[in-house]
């Protein structure tokens, strides 16, 4: 007879060098009114099994560290409360589509490389000296890219993307949101460089507009918009490059 004051968590465990393949382990935690999945994992680590590995930092959905599959859907563990999940066992797995380092910890190296590849900084039209003052921007110019700057690099969108699941080299939704954050910025002049970086099969053309990336985004960044508007940009660039003056 299950104890109603307790909640069952089924966690996918993997210890490299020891386990041939990941397998589920079951834990019962003391339930509480506002217990998040992250807090449940912390209580397991503190009281039941100190070897459980998972990433976390801020506990308030701004650091993007605690992304994991909860009942099969990519979510931030810190902002997912046990009481909001259907009764019964809660399944916790590392993010889909990424190599598992250990337990709930996945490899992020590929994602970081992708971010580096799209020039993730403002490339100014004309450099200004401090004496010339700041680069000015109107509210409308800010609105053009602001939502894309809300990305916290949690990679939930990659776990939701079946094309990334098929092709790990696909640039993917998160990096494209960051690309659009800079390409949409009125102070930036790096648009062509970035379009050249994503015009290949592993760039924007691996996307088939599935759209689930935007649905799972905890920050409403709408990465599917970033990818697909750049499909349009890349398609026009394909033909207009012949007219372009270098």
């Amino acid at each position: 007879m299950p104890d109603p004051a307790k909640r069952e968590l089924r966690i996918l465990r993997y210890q490299p060098g020891v386990d041939a393949a990941p397998a589920f382990g079951t834990f019962w935690v003391e339930n509480a009114e506002n217990l998040s999945v992250l807090e449940a994992l912390q209580s397991i680590k503190d009281t039941l099994d100190g070897s459980l590995a998972f990433r976390w930092s801020c506990r308030m959905a701004v650091c993007g560290s605690c992304g994991m599959m909860i009942n099969g859907a990519p979510k931030l563990a810190c902002s997912t409360l046990l009481r909001d999940l259907p009764p019964g066992p809660v399944t916790v797995e590392p993010l889909n589509n990424f190599p598992i380092e250990r337990d709930l910890v996945i490899s992020v190296g590929g994602f970081v490389k992708k971010i580096e590849s799209i020039y993730p900084y403002i490339i100014p039209k004309e450099p200004r000296t401090i004496a010339q003052g700041p680069y000015l921007q109107t509210p409308a110019q800010l609105a053009a890219y602001e939502s894309f700057s809300d990305c916290i690099n949690c990679m939930l969108c990659y776990a939701a993307c079946p094309q990334f699941g098929e092709n790990p080299d696909f640039i993917g939704p998160g990096a494209m949101a960051l690309l659009q954050r800079y390409n949409g910025d009125s102070r930036d002049a790096g648009r062509q460089k970035r379009l050249d970086a994503i015009h290949g099969e592993d760039g924007v053309w691996s996307c088939t507009a599935v759209g689930i990336c935007s649905e799972v985004c905890p920050k409403s960044v709408d990465p599917a918009n970033a990818v697909n508007q750049n499909k349009t940009n890349s398609a026009f660039d394909f033909f207009l490059r012949f007219l372009r003056k270098e």
Binding site: T138, P139, A140, A143, A144, S147, G184, A209, G211, S214, D222, A224, N225, V227, N228, Q229, K231, T232
Partner: peptide, 19 residues
């Protein structure tokens, strides 16, 4: 439903038009 995803953000009076 997919159309707004393929367009740049539409800014009217300083605000993005909802998809």
């Amino acid at each position: 439903q997919t159309l707004p995803k393929t367009m740049p953000k539409l800014i009217v009076n300083g605000e993005a038009v909802p998809a």
